[in-house]
Design a protein around this nucleic acid. Sequence first.
DNA 1: TTCTCCATGTAAGTAGTTACATGATTGG
DNA 2: CCAATCATGTAACTACTTACATGGAGAA
Lengths: 200, 200
Amino acid sequence: MPRPPFRPEPRETDPPLSTTDYVVLGMTSLGARSGYEIRQAVELSIRFFWNISHAQIYPSLQRLEAAGLIRGWDEPHGRRPRRLLEVTEAGQQVLRTWLTSEEAMPFELRDIALVRLYFADRLEKEDALSLAAAVRERSQERVDTLRKIESDYHLSQDPASSSTLTLRLGIAFHEAMITVCDEYEDEQRAALAWRLEQAD
Amino acid sequence: MPRPPFRPEPRETDPPLSTTDYVVLGMTSLGARSGYEIRQAVELSIRFFWNISHAQIYPSLQRLEAAGLIRGWDEPHGRRPRRLLEVTEAGQQVLRTWLTSEEAMPFELRDIALVRLYFADRLEKEDALSLAAAVRERSQERVDTLRKIESDYHLSQDPASSSTLTLRLGIAFHEAMITVCDEYEDEQRAALAWRLEQAD
DNA sequence: TTCTCCATGTAAGTAGTTACATGATTGG
DNA sequence: CCAATCATGTAACTACTTACATGGAGAA
């Protein structure tokens, strides 16, 4: 009977961190002190380009703590349980290494509105028109909301660009969407007018 | 021995379609005749705002065929197997219904570059600067590529906006990114200059 | 003959969402 | 006292990616 092949002890080296882990680590490094605060910080800052749900945060915190990148201790508030966190020196270092690494920075966009618009030719022109209008209105609402937030923001203090970065990108993107919809609507209306003319 | 509990035949009512299923259905409706062609069509058109891999397409085709929304038949090319497809009238109807439905149109963006930029304050100013520069260059390359495609496109024929929609959105988005990076770099450089001045 | 493209599928693993579960505190 | 918010976690499920697997056709 052959000897089983030699396998070195599979050296449980820390698995590489996911982007979500780096977000959790980064928010801790910026001063978020609990899973709950991390979630709020994400919601108020980077959710436009990287959203995470609380169901991802708690397992991520466990991984980071096991890897020694953050430190956590229980500090209940009254009888309500609470686990406070802080980043370790190793964690700071890992974060900085990630931020300066040369690895690829993939870009991903998923927008059902654009998918629908792409297939709008399958509809009657009237329906295609109202679809485009709905998409345009959605973007218009987003722009209005973001502009409102932007002006409230200017009224307050901090001119730090990292906080307004998401605002400005959101505005730029949705304004481009509005332009595209406008053009599409013009085309459809022109085609429709031509058809009505022919019918006379 | 107890009788097994009565269970009504679980009336295999068609599960709702995912957006990916609608993409596959839509591409078939636009004339893609095989899984392979669907994949190519996605790659050349909507991949900027809805990418799918071939591993998603084949199971999706099976679901759609089971639901009677497309029809498929084997038509090997020589000895190479090939399954051709066409959309059924029911499929056309389901697609139109989806396109005109009022359901929400969520928008999702995931960009590691922006995440990194958000955490750039954790770095030395020099490193923050080179990170911002790397992000700016990435977007600049994208803009250059997209503009090239756009001008090639203009040289050919079809002025259909659905095909240029992805181009124009991509350009608008990445130009906004460049502006944001420029501003961030200016800030960092100013802070750096100030620090050097103090050191004198 | 070798490379690229055509062509279809499955398996295993990772990532993410939604729902389930619980309960305390604070402010009106 | 009731609603909103604080606060943490798990389970089940869905979606998606990467790797595995196979092989023919056509062109250079």
